[in-house]
Write a protein that binds this DNA or RNA. Structure first.
Length: 592
DNA sequence: GCCGTTTTCGGCCCGACTGTTTTCAGTCG
């Protein structure tokens, strides 16, 4: 009945698994309670997987996805083999397919969606949202049992917001989320009742993109603080408000969630509201085995609540070390915190140089030119406490120049860099270049041209859509060049714009290890590439990385902090990141 | 349906808020 093409993306598979969970909820929530949880967990894992599941299926390694056990695995194998799954068809048999599109609308869960679809006999999945909108605007929902005037209004608004693209859809990139949070924290602190206010959630964990802005406030007067919060000048509407929490939507559609505790419990709240959900669930399950129950109020021991004014004390109360927010994702951090063996993560001030900056040197590049001079960038590097700065403009456009012209440009550039190094001994300029890997795997420049540089970065800037196998071959060939030391923005993703291309990462890791190459963690906020999960994987594999900004202007050199955030989320220590090395050690690596 | 340095069987986080309700179901994080 439900036919699917055998090539489904992870996103589509995750959606399918969520629909199975929803169907189980509709069938019998109690009976299938744990199946529902299992399918939701599996959906999350699939969506966050670094590998397309179809590839894992071909490699017979579907069992490497956490949360996919024998049962779901065999269903997926059937899906890839035949395009459908008998068991899924059975689960979804009595659920009209108009239910599923409604689940993407905020405030719509399986129960409400099902009841509405059933009552109004909605048949067409494609038009279900529009059909329901019409029904709600005609006032037909208010009379239903379990609904009323208010819920009819709420449903209509939810659909309208959904159609305008507000709510669940796009996530904010980190700097935008930080600024939004800072504005509202400053506003909150205008109230004398606010003892402390902190942005938490995925923003504190420094995820590449942030959905809602979560803020925790410490106060002895919750009701006044809530009142102050919902009076925020940029509020679009109040989503909800109670005695200790409230949510607003601000102009632009971002949602701000507020949670409140008195000073003596603020540590418990920081812990609770920072998440992640998976970390907290694992932490609570772990505590439960010791007879403890955890919440934003504190730790319950034999029915008695212990409060914590700091997060450090909260974790200590559980018999473990404090865990940096960036790694609270249930990837093994809890076990290490108990064993007191957490890694010491890299910090911004460990960074000794930036290796990917584009100056305004007139190189007539294939892509965009920088807007600041080498000199300006070097003096900013000195202010940032760096020992070195690697200039990595794009290679001169190949189509617009003869080979001779290219040599001449690169010779001039080399001389310029040497001159700068003579006049300024405090920060060393390194002569690099960002060279395109062409579709056939060859580099955009010939060896004579490349010899003008100390080393090069290589990257993909054209023909992004290629089969995984071909793209891997292309990257391996480009990166194998003896002077290619760094693979820049390795996935090619642009957040909220395009997904990265597919690569066989283990082949790339292998090459890096064997030939002493590094992967870049590009700190540009729309890239943040490598993504943190691949950083984590690369480190487990023993691959070294560098963090760089891809600056095209001197003030962008401050973006380094976002790259360090990514590295931390990938569990990077100083040892994993090569631009923590002193100048001499770094050059030694660069020239091997 | 998944998972395991107290388990291959017997567990599975915890709470807030809203609307429609006379005590709770549904949704969310």
């Amino acid at each position: 009945m439900i036919l699917m093409t055998s090539i489904m993306s992870n996103f589509e598979i995750a959606n399918l698994l969520r629909n199975i969970a929803a169907s189980y909820s509709i069938k019998d929530e109690k009976k299938y309670r744990f199946q529902i949880i299992a399918y939701q967990k599996a959906a999350d894992a699939v969506e966050n997987s670094n590998n397309e599941l179809i590839d894992l299926y071909k490699e017979k390694s579907l069992e490497t996805v956490p949360g996919v056990g024998p049962s779901i695995r065999s269903h997926l194998e059937e899906l890839f083999k035949t395009g459908k799954v008998k068991h899924f068809n059975w689960v979804m048999k009595d659920i009209p397919k108009a239910v599923f599109p409604l689940l993407s609308i905020p405030t719509f869960g399986p129960k409400r969606a099902y009841k509405l679809v059933k009552t109004f006999k909605l048949k067409n999945g494609e038009t279900a949202v529009d059909d329901l909108q019409k029904i709600a605007s005609e006032g037909k929902i208010a009379d239903l049992e379990g609904f009323g005037e208010q819920s009819q209004k709420d449903i209509l608004r939810a659909i309208n917001e959904y159609q305008k693209g507000k709510g669940k859809t796009t996530r904010m990139v980190l700097p935008y989320a930080s600024q939004t949070a800072e504005k509202i924290v400053n506003y909150l602190k205008q109230s004398k009742e606010v003892i402390d206010a902190q942005p938490l959630g995925s923003l504190r964990r420094k995820m590449a993109t942030v959905g809602d802005i979560d803020i925790a406030v410490s106060t002895n007067n919750p009701s006044l603080v809530i009142k102050h919060f919902i009076s925020y000048p940029y509020v679009d509407r109040i989503i909800e408000k109670g005695p200790v929490t409230a949510s607003i939507m601000v102009s632009g559609g971002a949602q701000i969630d507020l949670m409140i505790q008195p000073k003596e419990s603020f540590g418990s709240l920081l812990q609770h509201f920072t998440g992640s959900k998976d970390h907290n669930v694992a932490l609570r399950e772990n505590a439960l085995k010791k007879g403890l129950s955890l919440s934003e109020y504190g730790i319950k021991r034999q029915g008695k609540l212990e409060k914590f004014d700091s997060e450090e004390k909260f974790y200590k109360g559980l018999g473990m070390d404090w865990i940096p927010p960036e790694i609270r994702e249930n990837r093994g951090e809890i076990e290490l915190a108990i064993a007191r063996k957490l890694p010491r993560l890299i910090e911004l001030n460990d960074i000794k140089g930036d290796l990917h900056v584009h100056s305004d040197f007139p190189i007539e590049p294939s892509h965009d030119l920088g807007r600041s001079s080498m000199k300006e960038m070097l003096s900013r590097a000195l202010e940032l406490g760096y020992e070195y700065l690697g200039f990595s403009e794009h290679n001169p456009s190949v189509s617009k120049h003869s080979q001779k012209q290219i040599y001449s440009i690169l010779a001039k550039r080399k001389e310029e860099i040497e001159q700068l190094n003579k006049s300024n001994k405090n920060v060393r300029a390194i002569n690099l270049l960002e060279v395109d890997i062409l579709a056939n795997g060859k580099l955009a420049l010939d060896n004579n041209a490349i010899d003008f540089m100390d080393a090069i970065l290589v990257s993909i800037h054209s023909v992004h859509s290629m089969e995984k196998k071909e793209m891997t071959k292309r990257v391996l060939e480009g990166l194998s060049h003896p002077k290619a030391k760094i693979f820049a923005h390795p996935t090619g993703r642009l957040l909220n714009q395009r997904a990265g291309y597919d690569l066989d990462w283990y082949s790339v890791f292998d090459l890096c290890k064997k030939q002493n190459k590094a992967l870049e963690i590009n700190a540009w906020p729309n890239r943040l590439d490598l993504p943190d999960s691949l950083v984590h994987e690369a480190i487990r594999y023993g691959v070294k990385m560098i963090i760089s900004t891809d600056s095209h202007q001197v003030n962008q050199m401050d973006l380094m902090t976002y790259g360090v955030d990514v590295a931390k989320r990938g569990w990077a220590t100083k040892n994993d990141i090569l631009n923590t090395l002193s100048y001499n050690d770094f050059i030694k690596w660069l020239k091997t």
